[in-house]
């Protein structure tokens, strides 16, 4: 399992990277591995409001469906529309295939750094 040292993480296995007031959000390698083949992503639309700790969409694998939980509160600036036709990018490149970008960030979940997230994953097995 890979963990990117430059990102922050949630306990629901999303990653987030904040740069110039914009939060980029995706799912972690641990999450994609647990899901298996991702076959569909239900995305919000630009302009939608997201709330830290609440679902902003879902990701479906052959086996199961899993909520996408926003690490931050704000307004969706952009969604990665490549995922509509190629959801498997979340398996092949979890830290490259971002899902949403959030602007006007005004609140955050408790975020873990890479070391703490690694320890958390080890506990979850």
């Amino acid at each position: 399992m890979t963990i990117n040292p430059d990102l922050k993480y949630t306990k629901s296995h999303e990653w987030v990277k904040e740069e110039d007031g914009v939060a980029v959000v995706g799912i972690t390698d641990f999450a994609q591995d647990a899901l298996g083949d991702v076959v569909f992503v239900n995305l919000p639309e630009a302009g939608d409001e997201v709330v830290a700790g609440e679902s902003f969409g879902d990701v479906e694998s052959v086996k199961a469906v899993s909520d996408l939980v926003s690490p931050v509160s704000g307004i969706v600036q952009a969604v990665n529309e490549e995922l509509i036709d190629a959801p498997e990018m979340l398996n092949s490149d979890p830290y490259g295939a971002w899902i949403i970008k959030v602007e006007q960030v005004n609140d955050r979940e408790t975020l873990l750094d890479a070391d703490d997230y690694e320890a958390f994953c080890a506990e979850e097995g």
Partner: peptide, 10 residues
Amino acid sequence: PIQYPSGIVA
């Protein structure tokens, strides 16, 4: 085994 490393789709 529910799946091997190649995954269900493959």
